[in-house]
């Protein structure tokens, strides 16, 4: 090959090498700031595929897990009626001044779980909405009572 071709190929290779680095730099530049999304969308984006999550949501929850609050980590099986409150005869006793003696009840019937507020002082919240009537709940819903947040899991 003629020398001029060799020189041309050599320069072309070095240019390609640096061009590759420029492409990488461009990719890094578009990666500096993430994208802002709402927490609601995040539930879908978080790790698990959407279809799986939807399917799971159709099935009945198996347990109630306290995710936040003084007793975080505690789980309780669902199925039998559960009364949540401060009194000793409750199935789930929450030692919390913001929880009423008999605060709320979760019961199962007709293929789904229902939570009802038993006239508590500070209310029962399902997915951050205060409930006034018995409300249907399923897997993935959150329940807040006093300082504790609970999650229904399979």
């Amino acid at each position: 090959m003629s020398e001029i071709v060799v020189l041309g190929l050599k320069l072309a290779f070095l240019a390609a090498l640096w061009l590759a680095i420029l492409f990488v730099a461009a990719a890094i530049r578009t990666d500096v700031f993430g994208r802002k999304i709402s927490t609601a969308e995040l539930q879908i984006a978080d790790g698990q595929p959407t279809r799986k999550q939807l399917k799971a949501a159709q099935k009945l929850p198996k347990k109630l897990k306290i995710t936040h609050g003084p007793q975080a980590g505690t789980t309780l099986p669902l199925g039998e009626p559960i009364i949540i409150g401060r009194a000793d005869d409750c199935q789930l006793v929450l030692n919390d001044d913001y929880v009423s003696t008999h605060h709320a009840r979760i019961s199962r019937g007709g293929g789904y779980d229902i939570i009802e507020d038993l006239g508590s002082t500070n209310g029962t919240f399902v997915n951050n909405q205060r409930i006034t009537v018995p409300t249907q709940i399923g897997t993935g819903d959150s329940v807040r009572i006093g300082q504790s947040t609970m999650l229904l899991e399979r």
Binding site: D31, G34, I37, S38, A40, A45
Partner: peptide, 11 residues
């Protein structure tokens, strides 16, 4: 609604 920053996967 709360907002959080996420990175795209960029595969």
């Amino acid at each position: 609604m709360d907002e959080v920053v996420v990175y795209r996967q960029r595969r």
